[in-house]
Every structure is written in C-alpha cells, then in structure tokens.
Simulated scan of single mutants.
Amino acid sequence: QWDVNTQKEFLRIIERESNHLQALIDNLLDSSRLQSGQMSFDNQIVRLDALIRDEAARAQINHPSLVFHLDLDSAIRPVWGDPNRIAQVIDNLITNSEKYAPGAEIFISLHQQGQEVIIDFRDTGPGIAEQYLDSIFKRFFRDPDQSIKVHGSGLGLSICKEIIEHQSGHIEASLPAGWGLTFTITLPIYQPRNTPSPTE
C-alpha cells in the first residue's frame, strides 16, 4: 500500500500526462483543420489591450511563478479578427515560455504603427540557437537542445503562424541582444466599411 503523499503524487503525474495528451490531440486537430481550410473563424472587432491583459491574468492564475511586464497602449485602434484564436496564439506563446524558460520574465508590448497593430512578446529565457530560428514555425519542428527535456508536439508555433496569417497578419521570431526570444505579431487595424445611404 502506498501512503497518502505517494498517492497524491501519482495523481498529479496522471493529471499532468493527461493534460499533455489532450494538448497534443488539440494541436493535431487544429493543425489538420488549418491545413484543410476547415477551421472556422468568428471575426469581430477586437481590443487587443484587453485581450492580452486577460490572457496574462489567466496564465498567472495557472502558473503563479510567471512574471509579466505589460506595456499596452490602450489608445490603439482595434483589429478585425477572431478573439478566441488570437487569444490561443498569446496563450501558446506564454505556455512555451513557461515550458522552455521556467522562471523567466515575460515582456509584452502593444503599439500601433500606421495601419497596423504590433505585439512584441519577449521572454528572458535561454532562447534558441540561431541556426534553428528559421525552422521554429515549421510543423513538427522541435528544438533539438530541448526536445528530450520538454513535452511538446512541435505544432504550437506552426498553428500560431497559420492563425495569424488567416487574419491577414504576420508573425516572426528574432533573437534580441542578450537572452531570450522575441515574437513580433503584426495585425491590420479594423477598417469599417462605409455604410451606403438609403438613397444609394
């Protein structure tokens, strides 16, 4: 017979592995839907500053050790997109930081440049070797230096890229000076169509 503490530890392991398996299944389904053009998007006006704050707050509840530094311009214009899918992208980036750079600080900034809104997401983790930088958005790619130590499907960032591109946006990764990895997401601002007058 195992004591109570051992039983609790086994239950935690089972729950953790179940979550990993569910995440893998979800990623496989999302990737398949995106590849076949069957993923649905419920586009609407989205305030990115509020969305990012909500995602950071939710992540901090699940992972209290995360430290966020938010620099969000609340005066920027909204974008046109699916808030749940954009939130999925932000959540994926946060989850990656939590997995690959535990204890790292996360910096998220939001600003408008011309007709585009730009999200810069950076953590202070170990980053990735420069030779792999061009591959991180490829399906099933995993950092060889981390793949043994960290669970993952290699689909998360490719899903992020396809979601953003489906909403007329762009995402890229770069290595800042020093430590960490930066993701830059660009989305077009919402351009309301002119409503025809009754006489037209």
Score class of each variant (00 low, 15 high):
D123L: 05
L110Y: 02
I148C: 06
K161G: 02
P64Y: 08
G125L: 04
C160E: 04
F41K: 09
E130H: 06
L72A: 02
D49A: 09
F121N: 05
N62M: 13
C160R: 04
P83T: 00
R142G: 05
V150H: 12
Q22G: 08
G169A: 07
P102Q: 13
N43W: 02
L28W: 10
L66Y: 03
I52W: 00
F141T: 03
F68D: 03
D3T: 07
F183C: 01
R16C: 11
T95W: 07
H151R: 10
H151C: 13
Q35Y: 13
N92D: 11
R77A: 07
E172F: 08
R142Y: 05
I76D: 00
S65G: 09
I164P: 00
A101V: 07
I148A: 14
H63W: 13
S31R: 04
F137C: 01
Q131L: 09
P102K: 04
I119P: 00
P196F: 08
I106P: 00
F140A: 14
D91F: 15
S158L: 01
R193A: 14
I171S: 03
T199Q: 12
D143W: 03
L34E: 00
V79G: 01
E116F: 11
I86R: 01
Y100P: 02
S36G: 04
F141C: 05
L11A: 12
Q7Y: 12
P196N: 06
S40K: 13
F10W: 12
Q191R: 10
I14A: 11
A56E: 03
E105H: 09
S158H: 10
L29H: 15
Q115H: 14
I52V: 06
V67H: 15
L29P: 01
K138W: 09
E17V: 10
N5E: 14
G37R: 09
